[in-house]
């Protein structure tokens, strides 16, 4: 009778260890797909968003060019936003990207007017208003690109991500690292989680009109070329 090798019972163990290590390594890789992806392709997609009115209602609806759906907003002397709760750990998944286009800018006689045709809010609610933080990505014609402004309160920072007309065609594509933008705007580490995003077009301050398009808002993903 043939004698079994001494190591026979533990021979599968290295293979098992290798499999466990591979599984652990795979579990730590950030997902490439965003946690939240708003394509605005379905008519009923806005049902998951809630409207918040500041001064008159802005019209938000799903519009189409061919088969491509997108969010269309039109403000006539009005200011209201649509808002969606999310939970994104920005230490792990700090990226946000979206497509947008401005059809009509509000008539701003001076840069001081805080009407923007297109805004994307990233909200970090706290235990009180003063402890809450808000990043607003805006498109403006008067402010310089990448300028950081303080909003109506110190805890609201406005980053001008696009200035003037879109040079790429109908859609301009933005991609931002929320973590880095927060640090740049507030000079401090951000709270761990983004709790909501919102979209707004407003033209109430200038009593004019504004119109914008939004599409493919992706929140909560990781880009390997980024440090964060």
């Amino acid at each position: 009778m043939m004698k079994r090798p001494f190591l026979y019972p533990i021979a599968p163990l290295p293979l098992l260890a290798l499999l466990i290590c591979a599984a652990l390594a795979y579990s730590t890789i950030p997902p490439l797909e965003p946690l939240e992806w708003f394509a605005f392709s379905q008519e009923d997609e806005l049902e998951d968003w809630s409207e918040k009115v500041l001064n008159g209602k802005v019209a938000y609806w799903i519009d189409y060019i061919g088969n491509n759906g997108f969010l269309h907003s039109r403000s006539i002397k009005a200011c209201s936003a649509i808002y969606r709760k999310v939970t994104i750990d920005i230490d792990e998944l700090p990226m946000v990207s979206w497509k947008w286009s401005v059809v009509q800018f509000p008539d701003k006689p001076a840069p001081e007017f805080d009407d923007y045709p297109a805004r994307l809010y990233v909200c970090f609610p706290g235990i009180s208003f003063s402890r809450s933080k808000f990043l607003e990505y805006v498109w403006d014609r008067n402010q310089e690109k990448e300028s950081v402004l303080t909003g109506a309160a110190e805890n609201i920072k406005i980053i001008v991500v696009r200035s003037g007309d879109c040079e790429e065609g109908l859609w301009c594509i933005e991609e931002r690292n929320i973590h880095d933008d927060y640090v740049m705007a507030f000079g401090a580490e951000p709270p761990k989680r983004v709790r909501a995003i919102a979209i707004m077009s407003d033209a109430d301050g200038t009593e004019s009109s504004a119109e914008a398009l939004f599409d493919d808002i992706k929140v909560g993903y990781y880009v390997f070329s980024q440090n964060k």
């Binding site: 809010y121 909200c123 609610p125 809450s132 609201i156 919102a198």
Partner: peptide
């Protein structure tokens, strides 16, 4: 505050 959500509305 959470219901109002948008900072300008809260403010």
């Amino acid at each position: 505050m959470n219901q109002m959500a948008i900072p300008e509305i809260i403010l």
